[in-house]
């Protein structure tokens, strides 16, 4: 039987996906701004963050309305709970992309400093995790979600590697300290994005299987 409740759920899903698309753009643009020293692009990303924030508020409102009007149960309830937990994660990722761009603008005010690090690779991995987390949500794919969660270790390792490299640069020449610290921050931001993607994936597993795997021992995941 068709339920108009499903229309509401689809509408919310729509909004969430649109928000996800904006965030993907924000991440890829922040990476390009970083690699190409593009201040203008960085400023664009910062300017568009407000839109994403508004989207978060709109999704929250709509979801609360849905709870008030429809009293969702079972998979409907898990869906609504998932939405309410995923949205802030996405918003946080957008904020991190904005933070990346702020650091990029600062870097661009200084002479170019082009160290050899794992940072681009780290950024791409983080971006990939966010994209796959959203894919997992759209498809209700708990397998993919678990894969993304496991991938977080790779990102952590890359963060550590790029930090060590930057540390070396700093020790070599004190003039490198300022840009290298900014780059360390940027590495941390991408690492955080990967964490947020991991959180999203944990909720996807909950959505699909009803299992809370957060903070669980690895065998129970």
């Amino acid at each position: 039987m068709h339920r108009h409740f499903d229309d509401d759920i689809e509408a919310i899903k729509d909004m969430l996906l649109r928000m996800g698309a904006m965030i993907e753009d924000a991440i890829s643009q922040s990476i390009r701004a970083l690699l190409e020293r593009d201040t203008q692009m960085a400023e664009e990303v910062i300017a568009r963050d407000d839109e994403i924030d508004q989207m978060e508020v709109a999704i929250d409102k709509r979801t609360i309305e849905l709870i008030a009007k429809m009293q969702p149960a079972a998979s409907d309830l898990r869906f609504v709970a998932t939405i309410m937990k995923i949205t802030p994660e996405l918003e946080r990722i957008a904020d991190l992309a904005q933070d990346v761009c702020e650091r990029v603008i600062e870097l661009n005010r200084e002479p170019q400093f082009k160290p050899v690090t794992q940072l681009p690779q780290l950024a791409e991995n983080a971006q990939k995790m966010v994209r796959e987390a959203l894919d997992a949500f759209v498809r209700g794919d708990a397998m993919l979600a678990r894969e993304v969660i496991r991938h977080d270790d790779v990102v952590d390792q890359l963060t550590e590697d790029s930090f060590r490299a930057l540390l070396t640069y700093m020790m070599e020449n004190p003039r490198n300290i300022s840009p290298a610290i900014r780059l360390t921050f940027i590495g941390k931001y991408f690492e955080r994005m990967a964490d947020n993607a991991t959180n999203i994936c944990e909720m996807v597993v909950y959505l699909v299987e009803g299992k809370m795997i957060k903070h669980a021992a690895p065998d129970n995941r």
Partner: peptide, 18 residues
């Protein structure tokens, strides 16, 4: 196969929440 990107593409032109 549905991915996030294809899903967004099909939905982006849908009418906004009324």
């Amino acid at each position: 196969m549905t991915t996030f990107a294809t899903e967004v593409a099909t939905r982006v032109n849908a009418k906004p929440a009324d």
